[in-house]
């Protein structure tokens, strides 16, 4: 990989279906949302959040869209608003959920269906490689 042009580098990821790459721009966009998630690494904060989510979220300066996505646990929505899965993990762990639970929701399947797909060897890359060439 010899000095890739930045635009070409970033554009290649945009061609990959169902995938949001957490680049520096998205990191800027999601900063407050991700920092709110980080606060849930402390037990006293988890307790305060669970006691009154809307009240707890007031001090985090989230956008309307981020706020709505958090309160409705719209995981795809949070990612579109700059959330990163490893930060969001603090929120779904606080809810008592696993990565697999949230992954299933994002694919639109039940956790049972998703777990079964994984047992059968996972999602086949064929047809899932490129938006511009779905036959790949």
């Amino acid at each position: 990989m010899s000095e890739p042009k930045l635009t070409a580098y970033l554009d290649e990821f945009e061609d990959i279906p169902g995938t949001l790459i957490f680049n520096t721009q998205r990191s800027r966009q999601g900063f407050n949302l991700n920092q709110f998630c980080m606060s849930l690494m402390k037990d006293e904060n988890r307790k305060a959040f669970k006691a009154n989510e809307a009240e707890y979220l007031k001090s985090w300066n989230l956008t309307e869209a981020q706020l709505k996505a958090v309160l409705t646990r719209d995981w795809t929505g949070m990612m579109k608003e700059g959330g990163n899965i490893y930060f969001l993990a603090k929120l779904f762990s606080t809810d008592g959920h696993s990565f697999q639970h949230v992954a299933a929701i994002m694919t639109g399947s039940t956790q049972e269906e998703y777990a079964q797909m994984m047992l059968e060897g996972g999602r086949n890359p064929k047809g899932n490689r490129s938006k511009s060439n779905p036959s790949l």
């Binding site: 279906p17 990612m79 694919t107 998703y114 996972g122």
Partner: peptide, 17 residues
């Protein structure tokens, strides 16, 4: 090794790769 934790493509596995 292969894994995707996000979006509609979550669960991707590529044993051959």
């Amino acid at each position: 090794m292969s894994h995707q934790l996000q979006g509609t493509r979550a669960g991707l596995i590529n044993k051959e790769w």
